[in-house]
């Protein structure tokens, strides 16, 4: 039976290494990308998988902690996209324009403008 734990152990080490590389790539994306939304893209995806993989790897290397580490992984998988969505929405509404190349479209700007128009209409009535 011991060989199963050996395989899990080495799989855990591999996951730790992979996760830390992705965490680094996420931070590099945060540093290099030209505007806030692209930074969120790179940061959220890479840091979510990086953190999940690192934490699961520790869970495989040290199986006594697996349950709690698994709960942390689940929490990160749910909370990280939510917080990035909240940040993207808030910064778009506060007026941070997305970086667009020629002919790029920003469909959300129309929605925000329409909502503002509805609100002013309501307040003038």
């Amino acid at each position: 039976m011991n060989w199963i734990f050996d395989i899990l152990y080495y799989a855990g080490l591999f996951l730790i290494l992979l996760g830390s590389v992705f965490l680094f790539l996420g931070a590099l994306g945060i540093y290099r990308m030209p505007d806030l939304y692209n930074r969120l893209q790179a940061g959220t995806k890479a840091s979510t998988l990086g953190a999940m993989s690192t934490i699961l790897g520790v869970g495989l290397v040290h199986p006594q902690w697996f349950v709690k580490l698994f709960i942390i992984v689940l929490f990160i998988a749910f909370s990280n996209p939510l917080s990035s969505h909240a940040l993207a929405r808030a910064s778009h509404r506060s007026g941070v324009k997305p970086f667009l190349k020629e002919g790029g479209e920003d469909a959300y700007a129309e929605e925000v403008a329409a909502e503002k128009a509805r609100e002013t209409e309501k307040s003038t009535l």
Partner: peptide, 10 residues
């Protein structure tokens, strides 16, 4: 800050 906190957790 968001990314830093996730990296910090790992």
């Amino acid at each position: 800050t968001d990314t830093l906190s996730v990296i910090g957790i790992a």
